[in-house]
């Protein structure tokens, strides 16, 4: 049994479809704490103590967000800048997050083919997630294989939104109950609703 803390960072929720479905599903996970960062901190005044306490109270930290400019939305970056303090998250005495796990669930506008040599984004999606992977490493956290929905803008037409949301839910339920093992991801591992279709 692992306690889940699910952070959701999306500034334009009125226009969201894929992430909205994922977020709705995440809130059905038993005993998980769900935080809509843009709702909680619309003026970016992040309560560092409270966020650090939240981290301490949970085992698996989930970040759900759309990829903006090959990175996180700005509030999630602000959250990282403020909450992951030296002496708390990293550094000689900063061992408070050691042993916890980080799970990413992201959506991209570009299709899977774009994230490859020859595609217009040129590098695999994992490369764009390295900063977070390295953050987990520095904090002695286990970095789990990220769940990615490629081509999210076109996903609506093909029923992938529901499928992806359900896969996301299955993953979260599994991490919570222990059915899905908490283990370090291989350097190139990516989960999608397609690769997990048989297991869900």
């Amino acid at each position: 049994m692992a306690k889940l803390l699910i952070y959701y960072a999306h500034p334009g929720q009125r226009f969201s479809r894929a992430n909205a479905a994922m977020w709705a599903r995440a809130q059905t996970v038993k005993d998980a704490t769900c935080v809509d960062l843009y709702a909680e901190y619309p003026r970016f005044d992040i309560d560092v103590d409270r966020e650090q306490q939240r981290l301490l109270d949970h085992d698996v930290i989930v970040f759900q967000f759309p990829v903006f400019w090959y990175s996180t939305p700005s509030l999630l970056k602000e959250w990282q800048d403020l909450v992951l303090e030296h002496g708390f998250a990293y550094g000689h005495e900063g061992t408070r997050l050691a042993g916890k796990a980080m799970q990413l669930a992201v959506t991209t506008a570009g299709p899977e083919t774009a994230y490859a040599p020859g595609g217009h984004n040129r590098y695999p999606i994992r490369d764009y997630l390295r900063p977070l992977e390295q953050t987990a490493f520095l904090c002695n956290m286990t970095f789990l294989a990220p769940l990615v929905l490629f081509g999210a803008l076109k996903a609506e037409n093909s029923g992938q939104i529901e499928q992806n949301a359900e896969t996301y839910g299955w993953l979260l339920d599994g991490l919570s109950s222990g059915r899905v093992p908490v283990e370090e991801a291989a350097p190139d591992a990516v989960l999608t609703h397609e690769t997990l279709r048989e297991r869900v």
Binding site: H10, G12, R14, F15, S16, R17, T107, A109, I161
Partner: peptide
């Protein structure tokens, strides 16, 4: 108030905006 957060529209849509995909 919405500028920047609305998903990309028009010619770029089928390809998908590399920067901001608000699905």
């Amino acid at each position: 108030i919405e500028r920047g957060w609305a998903p990309p529209v028009g010619r770029d849509e089928p390809e998908g905006d590399p920067a901001k995909g608000i699905e």
